[in-house]
Amino acid sequence: MNDHASSDPELYEEFLQLFTRDQLRIFAWIRALVHDPTASSDVFQETSLEMWRSFASFRPDADFLRWALGIARHQVLKYWRKARRDRHAFSDELIQELTAESFSFAEELAPRQAALDDCIRKLSDRQRDLIHRFYGDNQSATAIAEAWQRSVHAVYKSLKVMRRFLFECVEAKMMEQSQ
């Protein structure tokens, strides 16, 4: 329960305005560090709650996204510490490095998303269908393989090729913008 929630609706409106603006970037940032889709949603939820709880301490002249990513970082680290029982987890040291490094992406998140949207338009119909299914509909590779009447391996390969193309396309666009 937030003491200031019920007592200060203006503060809540201010929070909502900022949160609305940056929520997708925050979620994308978390998803980059927490690969499991369900787990990343949970971390995002915890982050959202924690942001609201701490919003009274947010300075109006500060950068909201950076402040939010600071809170998200704690939640990501918390997730990985819990997941460490899984032998497939990154070490604390690496997660510390990655979260620290990813702060440099804060300003790049919006232009990267715009570049990605442009690059998606260059994909073939088949590749866009793949994005739709895998990322939009959350279909498994097995389900896509059945629908396409291809092997699961072929679907993973197509995903890899498509991601690689988008990566190179986005990097090229970001390079153009920086020149």
């Binding site: 997708l24 979620f27 994308a28 940032w29 978390i30 998803r31 980059a32 560090l33 690969h35 889709p37 990343s40 040291e93 690496l94 490095e97 990655l98 490094e101 990813s102 440099s104 992406f105 998140l109 990267r112 998303q113 990605l116 949207d117 998606i120 338009r121 866009r128 994005i131 739709h132 299914r133 990322y135 939009g136 991601r163 988008l166 990566f167 986005v170 990097e171």
Partner: peptide, 28 residues
């Protein structure tokens, strides 16, 4: 990734494609 900061940057940029696809409406 621990050995080379440059690789961490590349890794993060690449996983960002993966994560931003998940919140993009382009395929939806």
């Amino acid at each position: 990734l621990l050995a080379t900061p440059e690789l961490r940057k590349i890794y993060l940029r690449y996983v960002m494609i993966h994560s931003q696809l998940a919140v993009s409406t382009s395929g939806l």
